[in-house]
Amino acid sequence: MTTIPSTTPKAKPDEQFDDLTQQRHADLMGMWLFLATELMLFGGVFTGFVVYRYAYPEAFAEAATHLDLVLGMLNTGLLVTSSLFMALSERAVGADRKRLTLLFLLITIGMGAVFLGIKGYEWHHEYSQGLMPILGLEFVYSGQHADRAQLFFNFYYAMTGLHAMHMGVGMIWLMVMVVFTLRWRDPPRLRRQFQISGLYWAFVDVMWIFIFTLLYLLRASS
């Protein structure tokens, strides 16, 4: 929670709590519950995908071969590396190392930006191949089952779009954390905030793992 950082030397909990431990536990639990809701949000979309993947196995496996496996792999590696740096920045803030924290945080944000850049490039590439049936654009597909393949690509854009939106939110969030790190007031609060932000960032990574596996990896031999 973002309030006016306390400037008192002795850190105090918010008024509704008895002590800092209670507040830390409450914050953590609140965040995990929020992530549970995020999981159910993605879960609804995943359920839809699984239904169609089960109903149209050949069409979906073939459509998947039209995605760029190398770029997908690169992005997966990038995202997990950014998660690593996020986890390291949490440790750095725990050790009161301000400059190191800032460095790790900026690397995390930078990798997130590169991820989105690559994703955008991929989308553009698919657009130029006629594989973007959005807003009435024509869907040009060489393989069999063009209609089912369009269903696959609809899910591709829905899932990667939803994920990219979460990445964007995460990056704005981390930029706010950059400001908090620069100010460096009330270290216990800062540690709590880092823990919460790290949870969100890693969660977005976990969702990507499943999006990547479902869309890119469950493919036919090309």
Partner: peptide, 9 residues
Amino acid sequence: ASLVMVFFM
């Protein structure tokens, strides 16, 4: 996913 959840989260 488990690796991320156990070690990063």
